[in-house]
């Protein structure tokens, strides 16, 4: 009988004293649940290091910090609307840097991103508010309403994100992205896709906006799942910032789309 029969029967010990790391020249003897093989993240079962792993608490608290920064920025943007465009461009660059260059630096870039995007949102909200009185608070209420209701659905297991779900949402977002890009390029030639215009109150246009709001909402579920899985797998602490950042990106997109949808509905009156 091999000496591994005990391992096969009872599994590997979780006692940190019995674990060795690759870094120390030995081979790893940790339980599979504590390894994030292939993910590029190394976690150990050391008690001392347990504070350095991602938790749900941390991700939610960091989302709170980013939301507070976003509201602070919005107050600035509301009062100085001239900052809207530069803030939008800077926010876009910061988002690209965070996603593609340094997710591990999300703790530094994400707060700046939230602040700068807040400035942009403040300016855009003021623009819509001048068109339709009270539209901004409606959009804020609906955005957070969708956030909370989808979180309840996710936590209770009512909505179960699967690989197919992710593919469907990804394909939808890809299509929306192409639509945005075509509209953006067309705007250089003095035209654009009229269906995307906030003053277009046609049923087609409202339907399109509703569809985009649905996809933005569903991507919130993917963000919840990402954070939940990250905390389960014990990803590094900085992933809390990255999770909060991804939630912020989706929330900002959702808010802008709800604002556009409400403007379209109001333009029918």
């Amino acid at each position: 009988m091999s000496k591994h029969s005990a391992i096969n029967r009872f599994g590997r010990s979780r006692n940190p004293a019995f674990s060795r790391n690759f870094d120390q020249g030995g081979f790893r003897t940790q339980s599979s649940s504590e390894m994030n093989a292939g993910s590029g993240f190394r976690t150990t079962s050391s008690v001392a290091e347990s504070t350095d792993i991602m938790t749900l608490d941390g991700a939610v608290n960091k989302t709170g910090i980013l939301l507070a920064l976003c509201f602070t920025g919005a107050a600035v943007g509301w009062n100085i609307p001239a900052l809207t465009l530069p803030a939008g461009i800077l926010g876009f660059i910061l988002a690209l840097v965070t996603i593609f260059r340094s997710p591990s630096k999300a703790g530094t870039t994400a707060p700046f991103y939230a602040l700068v995007q807040g400035v942009m949102l403040g300016g855009i909200s003021l623009m819509y508010e001048n068109l339709y009185d009270g539209i901004a608070i409606q959009a804020i209420g609906l955005t957070f309403g969708i956030l909370a209701s989808l979180l309840v659905c996710y936590k209770s297991g009512l909505i179960k994100p699967t690989e197919n779900f992710r593919l469907m949402v990804g394909a939808g977002i890809g299509g929306i992205f192409i639509l945005y890009m075509v509209s953006f390029v067309m705007s250089f030639f003095g035209s654009g896709i009229s269906l995307l215009s906030p003053t277009n109150g046609s049923l087609m246009s409202i339907g399109l906006s509703l569809g985009i709001v649905c996809f933005a909402s569903l991507s919130l579920v993917l963000d919840f799942d990402y954070i939940e899985e990250g905390a389960e797998k014990g990803l590094p602490k900085y992933m809390e910032w990255y999770g909060a950042f991804s939630l912020m990106v989706t929330l900002i997109w959702l808010y802008l789309e709800i604002l556009r949808l409400l403007a379209k509905i109001n333009s029918r009156r």
Binding site: S39, V60, L151, V152, K155, R166, D225, E228
Partner: peptide, 30 residues
């Protein structure tokens, strides 16, 4: 908005139900 934020900050810190976490068709990100 206030109620929703309250729900988010409280419910967000609670682990998802077993119905959600213990299933075979979860997204395998890592």
């Amino acid at each position: 908005a206030a109620i929703s934020l309250f729900v988010f900050f409280n419910l967000g810190k609670i682990k998802a139900s077993k119905n959600q976490t213990n299933r075979n068709n979860r997204i395998n990100r890592f």
